[in-house]
Amino acid sequence: MNKIVIENLSLQYSDGTESLRNVSMEIPANAITVLFGPAGGGKSTLLRCLNRLNDLADVEVVDGKVIIDGENILDPKTDVIALRRKVGMVFARPVVLPMSIRANLTYGLELAGEKRRSKLDEAVERSLKLAAIWDEVKDRLDDPAIALSGGQQQRLCLARALALQPEIILLDEPTSGLDPLSTGKVEAALQELKKDYTIILVPHSVQQAGRTADYAAFFLQGELVEYGEGSVIFTAPKDKRTEDYITGRFG
């Protein structure tokens, strides 16, 4: 079942950079889809189209369609706030908000109008468990979130996105600043999560791409070069450029 269908998506920033060129792909639910390739390929740009975060950047032209659950979310009539609740995002550098651990988690829900203490507490526990960090922080939920280690902060950010009960989770190089141990924890959490969510991950290395991908898409300078099952892409890529990148001949 395809959760997201991208049709002929092109995007150009106002300084003239053409960051996505005619990208079409179908992203299935309950799987980890990996977008990989050298820097500047348009991976982040594509992610930021899926929750319309690019609305706030200097974008000149967006062309094509992004269809989530049958609706084109690039349509100006889309309720962007509701969309961002449905499509959660985790960034490369963990962005903990300047508040307590608990407040970081309940922030999104409170914005959405949830006031009941029981619901909020429930969401805190559920999302922290999903992000595999509950045991580490359960006794200090009221401490400032910024006191956590980098790896914990990143899992907190994941938990924060999960607290809103999204259907899709976007992760943009979520482990680029983390040690191998924390990276392993995040990857393990994602493997658990994919049973219930649609996960789109920009990995920070080809190795991570290989480890995590159910499906993989190789991006080069705004172009989708090759897209298919991870097991195929990483063992028998069809395109020479994909093969060169995977084998480390460039990038």
Partner: peptide, 27 residues
Amino acid sequence: VPRAYREGAWALGATRWQTIWRVTLPA
């Protein structure tokens, strides 16, 4: 205030005003 703070709040479905009031100004 790092742009990342604002984006973090937007990505959680905060409106521009909520972001200013609850995130940017406190930071």
